[in-house]
Amino acid sequence: MNDLDELKRYIVAHARGQRIGKLQEKLDSIVDDGDGPGSWVTQWSAAAAALERRGQLLPASRHYIMARFPYPDRPTRTRAAHDAAATFERWRAGRDLHPLDFEHDGHPVRCWQSGLSSARPRPLVVIMGGHLTVKEQWAPRLGVFRRLGLAAVVADIPRIGGNTVPYDAGAHRFLSSLLDAVGDRADVRQTYAIALSFSGHLALRCALEDPRLRGVVTAGAPIRSFFTDEAWQARLPRVTTDTLSHLTGLGLDQLGDWVIGPAQLAALRIPVAAVASTRDEIIPREDLLVLRDNVRDFRMLVHDDVHGAPNHTLESMAWTALSIQRMRGRSALPLRLLLRAARLRAAL
Rank of each mutant, 00 (worst) to 15 (best):
V272S: 07
L314D: 11
G129K: 02
S199P: 01
T278Q: 15
T243K: 14
P237G: 07
L339E: 15
R173E: 07
R122Y: 05
S118M: 11
D305G: 07
A332M: 11
T248S: 10
G215L: 11
L265I: 06
W232C: 04
F198S: 15
T164D: 13
Q264A: 14
R205L: 03
L255A: 00
D253Q: 14
I270R: 13
K22Y: 10
G308W: 05
E6F: 03
L314G: 00
G308P: 01
R326D: 05
L250S: 09
R340W: 12
R224I: 01
R330C: 14
Q24M: 07
H303D: 05
D180K: 02
S199Q: 05
R122W: 04
V259R: 11
A49C: 05
I157P: 00
P284W: 04
R79V: 13
S331Q: 10
L7S: 02
V153Q: 06
V259W: 00
A171E: 00
L51Y: 00
A273C: 15
D32Q: 07
A347I: 02
R185N: 06
D293A: 08
Q24N: 12
F88H: 10
V41D: 03
R185F: 03
R336P: 02
W232S: 09
I65W: 12
L268C: 04
V12G: 02
R269G: 13
D105K: 08
G256C: 01
I65Q: 08
L58K: 11
S114C: 07
Y71W: 04
A318N: 14
Q190I: 03
A139V: 05
G249I: 01
T313D: 09
C206V: 13
G17L: 01
D156N: 06
D96I: 01
D101L: 11
T248L: 02
Q18T: 02
M128A: 13
A84W: 02
E89V: 09
F69R: 14
V272R: 02
E89G: 12
T248C: 06
G36M: 12
R146K: 13
Q264E: 15
R122Q: 15
D33M: 08
A13V: 09
H201F: 04
A49I: 05
L236Y: 02
H98L: 12
I260D: 00
R62A: 08
S114V: 12
N311I: 09
W44C: 06
A309W: 12
H172G: 03
L142E: 13
T243S: 10
A341N: 11
W319F: 10
G115A: 15
D297C: 01
G17C: 04
V165P: 00
L202Q: 10
A81F: 04
L288E: 06
V12P: 06
G55Q: 07
W232T: 01
Q56Y: 05
F226Y: 14
R340Y: 05
I20C: 06
R185D: 02
I30R: 08
V259A: 00
C111H: 00
L348H: 12
H14I: 10
A332Q: 13
T164W: 06
L301K: 07
E230I: 04
S29T: 14
P310D: 11
F198Y: 12
T228R: 15
G106H: 00
I194G: 09
D229G: 05
V144W: 10
R95L: 11
V153S: 11
A207E: 03
A221G: 00
Q56S: 13
